[in-house]
């Protein structure tokens, strides 16, 4: 604490390392090293070839992996379509109600995630009000149901991660200089073109962050698939959980977990590239 250098960035050879030591050691011990043991477990074989876990992961559970990414991609897309307008209204049209709306958006976090998903189960139930209304509107056949369908699971995923989509988009819209928006409206005369040329490109960092914060947890989630779907909607998270905790087939379970992580990492990098180039154009 000897105040030698002035200003924000001080130089002190040991102080910062002492400050970060406990937290960083914890993260290394219980986040970084476990990823290494996960990789080791996936290659352990346990009486079979070292690659056996991965071979079975792709041949037996490839369809679960594909379904997980299909569902989470759909959920991300729907969340973007629903979340963007609300974020836009909050940033540009809410006026003094801005903070109030912000509070409303994070309100769902104050009730347990699982209980909220059970509430969806209650609402989508066969005899429930939503099914009744859709049947009455002839949008659903008389014996139609919502529970145990792909859309129930996608809807649940969308619901659970929607605030994570809204908040980053809101932050990036909020940062845009109002004069820029006015100038664009003068310049393009058509508000939709002004939005497409100026506002939307400037909000891309928020769209990027929001999409990742929705897509990543959705792809590994299994609660929505378990509670709102049937075995036909089962996602990869259920399989990983089941293989680890019930079947105890550790090489297979670890392989699945590792594959999930690698695919997500690749997807994130590709997505960053795509959005990055659009940003330049």
């Amino acid at each position: 604490m000897a105040g030698t250098a002035a200003g924000g960035g001080r130089r002190n050879p040991v102080a910062p390392y002492l400050l970060i030591a406990p937290g960083v050691l914890w993260l290394l011990m219980f986040f970084a090293i476990p990823l290494v043991t996960l990789a080791q477990t996936s290659l352990a074989g346990e009486g079979r070839a070292w690659w056996d876990g991965y071979a079975r992961a792709f041949t037996q559970y490839g369809s679960f992996i594909v379904r997980s990414f299909r569902f989470s991609l759909m959920a991300t897309l729907v969340a973007l379509l629903l979340g963007y307008p609300l974020a836009y209204v909050m940033a540009f049209r809410a006026g003094r109600f801005k903070n109030f709306l912000l509070g409303l958006v994070i309100l769902p976090f104050f009730t347990t995630f699982l209980v909220r998903t059970f509430a969806w189960k209650t609402m989508l139930n066969d005899g429930g009000p939503i099914v009744g209304m859709l049947v009455w509107l002839h949008l659903l056949p008389p014996d139609g149901r919502l529970l145990n369908t792909n859309w129930a699971v996608i809807g649940g995923l969308t619901y659970n991660f929607l605030p994570f989509m809204i908040l980053p988009i809101y932050v990036s819209l909020e940062k845009i200089d109002r004069r820029l928006v006015e100038a664009a409206q003068d310049l393009y005369s058509n508000p939709i073109r002004a939005f497409g040329r100026v506002v939307f490109p400037l909000s891309l960092p928020g769209v990027f962050a929001g999409s990742l914060l929705t897509f990543i947890p959705a792809s590994g989630d299994f609660i929505n698939a378990e509670l709102l779907g049937s075995p036909n909607q089962r996602m990869i998270g259920t399989v990983i959980q089941n293989q680890f905790l019930q079947v105890h087939d550790y090489p297979l379970a670890a392989s699945l977990s590792f594959v999930l992580m690698v695919i997500i990492t690749i997807a994130v990098v590709v997505y960053a590239r795509v959005l990055g180039t659009e940003d330049l154009a």
């Binding site: 990823l35 996960l38 990543i216 590994g220 990869i236 680890f244 977990s257």
Partner: peptide
């Protein structure tokens, strides 16, 4: 940016 399943299982 790591799914919870991966964090938990590792």
């Amino acid at each position: 940016t790591t799914p919870e399943v991966v964090l938990g299982s590792s």
